[in-house]
Design a protein around this nucleic acid. Structure first.
Length: 874
RNA sequence: GGGUGUGUAGCUCAGGUGGUUAGAGCGCUACGUUCACAUCGUAGAGGUCACAAGUUCGAGUCUUGUCACACCCACCA
């Protein structure tokens, strides 16, 4: 017996443990069907589950469970990311509480500490994914720093290096002075602020009283100035080109050069050029072979090349202004809106800094990655995200992959004392090559930089499957079927996976990429800790159950649009689960039990034929929508079927059978109800795996677990509106009319049915009569007279005798208007169907649809005409 | 500056290829607890589909323009 109430918290954990223990998430390698695989976007090992994960992983789990039920070999490959900066920061913060810095420990000890931390607290998010119901094959869980993946990283790195696609260069990079590492362009956030624009002047060398006027937001960088640029088209100022000016507060004299970077209408028209601290100036500097003077230390304090050594940029700025004022060179200071770059992790102001860094030649790797999308080997869903992808890929910059951190993959680079670089997979090999190169044993020093986390994530699609080893899993599951992720990750991850995979595997990492939106709060605002509007999925799960949260995510996911988390809606899906539970209880109480020998083809009763047809309809709708990644349509189709069709009508109508005396009918209905309930459990399972499993296990003995139950194949569909649809329509109309007329529910009505097709009444006579009894209506067929209220429904019209309520005049007007509209439509159908090019060019399905509409409209027209005739003279 | 998307009921949102009376959930109103379910049922109110013009027998849907909003990229001496 089912309990009166369903308790998700008990059931969900119990059921999940059984799945995992029984190995239900492992792929069935004996299946002769296709393989289906997804690699999970690896969450940061430091992370806790947020609503974004809940969405992302629910969608993946739905696809995985659906495909598993289709009988395919299914792998959902889980794992976590070592998340270089994030993890290092977390551990450093912990150490800081004990008053220790990572430098106190030293590199080796620190890394040991991080590993220990990971052992202890790194598994949180995976536990939470289990709570959500994610059916990953946990026996294959990987970590971007584990032995195998590290081997993949080293191998690819060496290969890229030897192909000339990784190189070292001294370049201007985004420098995070707090973390003291380079970061990539993508890790820099531009924030709007109100700053100041400073106007001052540099004296022209050798011309007393002559000046060149400068405007800048960062006066302290003047110590790195090595030129002043003016456009050669600048009529007012071009006479200064070729002269020299004295750089105040220094003993340097710099050239005034011609360069179009200086826009005559911006600022003063003359730009100070600081090649070592500004990306544009860097380009100018390269063009004119200017000296690059670095004025900053790694912590963004000023260095010995300035008079303000050791001061922060802000302090130095103040000092510089004061000094310029003393010299009488300062002219004015204005407020100025500007954007300042911040590090996304450290939130420190990012400084462009000249450093030695390692780069991946992304523009070269992008070529194959672009092509793979152009030729459809990898398809974005929805398609328009490929525009975003192309846009970025076509303008891609070299990718800075070196990080001056400790936690991460140390680069397989060794230097000889003279700076010669050896890039090999092992230290031994590097020494061997060095000995060969120098003709003697030499001393090597390993590069201390580690790789950008996204370097190893970029290999995820094949490294987790065993590469560089040629494994069965790699053969079976690569390329993966689909990648599911948010649009904010396209550049970080999707693009890099594409580049790395095309380079190494020569094939795409995934055939499709489903892009979903962001999870927002109820009002559509971005969730953030500082706003305090975050919702913890774990709390939601405790409150409503994982099934409710999952169903919400599925039902809200409409191809790339953002999802607003709504507590009320999640509660609604909890109610839906309760509804299903109670429907199952009803079935159980009325002896509806799954039996092996039931053949749905052999049912006799209209009611049962009808619900079976509806079940097939719902099934194919779910199937079609899941195949098209239309999650909300799929979820809504099940929802509508369970609540709106099965509970609201089938169960209600079945009562007249169960409370009646016909044992044969009763048995057929019991079997049908059990069969349809099973069908519901199957098609709902990908969305609500827990409650469906709990019911499956409790309702009957089974040959197969629900998680492996075969997905039903629906063949030809009976789309004819049956007598039951007719009866439902009738009842709805009666109820509606009764309410309109303000007749209390207890009022006994006599109703005249007129114009009915006799066979309708015969087919479902018992049903209609018993329903009428429930609705307190006495059904008669008779002539219609003047004092009748008309109700219309698909079977025709019915009348209730009441005096002076109905306005036949208005009714006639309404009918004739409808008739003329219908005429228009019929004309359209006819025109379209007689149009050669439409019939020959449009897909068969569309033409059929059009024909169906036409015949429906014809039928409708006939009915309306009959109805009109009937009331014509009243 | 370049790009992408959005504007539909009080709220949050659905509305593949134009086609019956524009839908859902929540909220609201009225009524209803007899044995699946009050985490419920029945009925109802509520919409100039941002605005304007166009194509069409027919436009929420297609075209053009306008207005508002959101996001992404680049730049701002």
């Amino acid at each position: 017996m089912l309990e009166k109430n369903y308790n998700p918290n008990d059931a969900e954990q119990r059921i999940y443990q059984d799945w995992e223990k029984s190995g239900d998430f492992k792929p069935d390698m004996r299946s002769n069907k296709d393989s289906f695989s997804i690699v999970i976007p690896p969450p940061n090992v430091t992370g806790v589950l947020h609503m974004g994960h809940a969405l992302d992983d629910t969608l993946q789990d739905i696809l995985v469970r659906y495909n598993r039920m289709l009988g395919k070999k299914v792998l959902w490959q889980p794992g976590t990311d070592h998340a270089g900066i994030a993890t290092q920061m977390v551990v450093e913060r912990q150490l800081a509480k004990e008053g220790i810095s990572r430098h106190d420990l030293g590199r080796e000890k620190f890394i040991e500490t991080v590993w220990k931390w990971r052992e202890k607290s790194g598994g949180t998010i995976c536990k939470q994914l289990r709570r959500l119901g994610a059916s990953c094959d946990w026996s294959r869980e990987r970590f971007t720093m584990d032995e195998g993946l590290s081997r993949a990283v080293v191998k690819i790195f060496v290969s890229l290096y030897k192909d000339g696609l990784i190189y070292k260069a001294k370049k201007l990079v985004n420098w995070d002075p707090k973390l003291m590492t380079a970061v990539s362009d993508l890790e820099v956030l531009q924030k709007e602020t109100t700053g100041k624009m400073y106007y001052y002047k540099y004296p022209i060398e050798g011309e007393e009283g002559e000046f060149v006027h400068i405007a800048t937001t960062r006066p302290e960088t003047m110590f790195g100035d090595t030129a002043v640029a003016i456009s050669k088209d600048n009529e007012k100022l071009k006479h200064l080109i070729g002269k020299k000016c004295k750089l105040p507060l220094t003993d340097r004299v710099i050239d005034i050069i011609a360069d179009d970077h200086a826009d005559p209408v911006k600022g003063t028209g003359a730009v100070k050029i600081t090649p070592a601290h500004d990306f544009n100036d860097f380009e100018v500097g390269k063009r004119h072979h200017l000296e690059m003077i670095n004025i900053l230390n790694e912590d963004a304090t000023l260095n010995e090349n300035t008079p303000f050594e050791g001061l922060s940029t802000m302090e130095a700025r103040q000092k510089t202004i004061e000094a310029l004022e003393k010299l009488g060179l300062m002219e004015k200071i204005e407020d100025h809106p500007m954007v300042v770059p911040y590090g996304e992790r450290s939130n420190a102001v990012i400084e462009p800094l000249m450093t030695d860094q390692w780069f991946v030649d992304a523009p070269k790797l992008a070529v194959a990655a672009i092509k793979a999308v152009e030729n459809g080997d990898m398809q974005f869903v929805p398609k328009n995200y490929e525009k975003t992808y192309f846009e970025w890929m076509h303008n891609i910059q070299p990718w800075c992959i070196s990080r001056q951190l400790w936690w991460g993959h140390q680069m397989p680079i060794w230097y000889a004392d003279d700076g010669t670089i050896f890039c090999e997979e092992t230290e031994q090999e590097a020494y061997k090559q060095a000995e060969k190169h120098f003709g003697k044993k030499v001393n090597l020093t390993r590069e201390t930089d580690v790789l950008d986390t996204w370097f190893s994530s970029g290999l995820w699609a094949f490294s987790t499957l065993g590469w560089p080893d040629q494994t069965e899993f790699l053969d079976t599951f690569y390329p993966t079927s689909v990648l599911v992720t948010g649009f904010d990750i396209i550049f970080f991850w999707v693009a890099r996976m594409m580049m790395m995979s095309m380079y190494q595997m020569k094939r795409v990492p995934f055939k499709k990429c489903y892009i979903h939106g962001l999870v927002r709060d109820e009002q559509g605002r971005k969730m953030s800790k500082s706003k305090g509007n975050t919702v913890d999925p774990m709390i939601t799960i405790e409150k409503y159950g994982a099934d409710a949260l999952r169903f919400f995510m599925a039902a809200s996911e409409t191809q790339g649009r953002d999802v607003n988390v709504s507590d009320a809606r999640i509660a609604g899906y909890r109610n839906f689960a309760t509804k299903l539970w109670n429907a199952a209880r009803f079935c159980e109480m009325n002896g509806c039990k799954y039996t092996k020998d039931f053949d749905p083809q052999k049912v006799q009763m209209d009611l049962n034929k009808w619900i079976l047809a509806k079940a097939d309809e719902a099934t194919s709708e779910v199937t079609r929508n899941l195949n098209d990644f239309r999650f909300s349509d799929a979820a809504n189709a099940v929802y509508q079927f369970v609540w709106g069709t099965f509970c609201d009508w089938y169960i209600e109508l079945s009562k007249s059978v169960f409370y009646g005396q016909n044992e044969a009918e009763k048995k057929e209905t019991q079997q049908t109800a059990a069969f349809v309930l099973d069908r519901i459990l199957i098609i709902l399972h990908p969305f609500m795996p827990f409650i469906t499993t709990e019911l499956w296990n409790n309702l009957a003995e089974r040959d197969v677990k629900l998680i492996h139950a075969p997905w039903p194949e629906v063949k030809a569909q009976n789309t004819n509106a049956s007598a039951i649809d007719w009866a439902i329509d009738l009842i709805t109309s009666i109820r509606s009319l009764r309410a309109d007329l303000n007749l209390p529910a207890g009022t006994k009505l006599t109703m005249f049915l007129d114009g009915l097709k006799q066979n309708h009444l015969d087919e479902t006579k018992q049903m209609v009569l018993s329903l009428a009894r429930l609705e307190n209506i006495e059904l008669l067929t008779t002539e219609v007279s003047k004092d009748m209220v008309q109700g219309a429904f698909s079977g025709g019209v019915f009348f209730i005798p009441l005096k002076g309520v109905v306005d036949f005049e208005a009714e006639r007007a309404r009918l004739s208007k409808e008739l003329s509209e219908l005429e228009g439509r019929l004309k359209g159908y006819k025109a379209k169907l007689s149009n050669e090019s439409f019939v020959s060019r449009a897909p068969q399905k569309v033409v059929e649809e059009e024909k169906r509409r036409q015949s429906e409209a014809l039928e409708q027209k006939q009915k309306l005409q009959e109805a009109f005739e009937r009331i014509k003279d009243l």
